[in-house]
Amino acid sequence: MWRYVVKRLLLLIPVVLGAILIIFFVLSFSKGTPAEILLGPGFTQEEYDAYNEELGFNDPFFVRYFRYVGNLLKGDFGTSYYYKTTVWSELKDRIPISLRTTFMALAMAALIGVPLGVLTAVKQYTALDTIPTALAMVFAATPVFWLGMLLMYFFAVKLGWFSTLSTGKFSDLILPTLALGLPHAARQMRFTRSSMLEAIREDYVRTARAKGCRERSVIWHHTVKNALLPVITVIGNSFGAMFGGTVIIEKLFVVNGIGSLMVKGIGNRDVPIVTGCVVIIALVYSFVTMIVDILYAYIDPRTKARFIK
């Protein structure tokens, strides 16, 4: 098992290097240089060129790429063109914020979506199936931004239960968590339901019933365990979508996470900032995927047997 973990950790390296290469390529060949955007209009071409030179932007593509990778291996994410501070100083406070928002939304999505999915599958064709399924369709199709604005309007403006601004209290996290988590909860509910319905029709479930097992035992010990395997993968993928996609929630609820920093960096052609954000997102996402795979091994004895010889 440890060999598998180490192997997965080593696989992170080409993933991150590949992500950096893509970002460098895209930003290098996009229209506009950092000097034009940061200085604004009204400067001579010589002044723009000199500023780009000062930023190191005029160096050849691969020179910049390998210089960045070399510095990254030493833990140096570079200096932001826009903020003139180190990229790490901009990232270090934002990473925990994005992680917290994402984990809370993910936890909420899993805690609502999975049990509901089990319930609707077990109570198929009843009201306990139809109503949650319908609601899940609505929330799954609801854009995150619109849901967030709606939640803010009703609960903050109309009811006054929450502040519209970030006040540092725990209650600030509730609306962003709901806005980000509800659509994912809906998707997870539908996926869990589908997986459960497949598992519930398997021969081993019929056998368990025929053997006289209690229905609760049939559902939780036999069906859910098998149905959960693909659901865990979906939850892991949801994390990636949430972590990289928190920018909308961050903008609406004034949360200073990594998403808003990356979008700002793209607009400013701030290559160090964007690359730093992508590195962090790639690392976190790869790490979470690895955790999911390891969980798989613990839940599914067949997968475990493959790793333990």
Partner: peptide, 16 residues
């Protein structure tokens, strides 16, 4: 001085 880039959030904050 709150930094709020989203128009609707600023407007809602005025209403509240």
């Amino acid at each position: 001085i709150n930094i709020i880039t989203e128009n609707s959030t600023r407007y809602n904050a005025l209403l509240t």
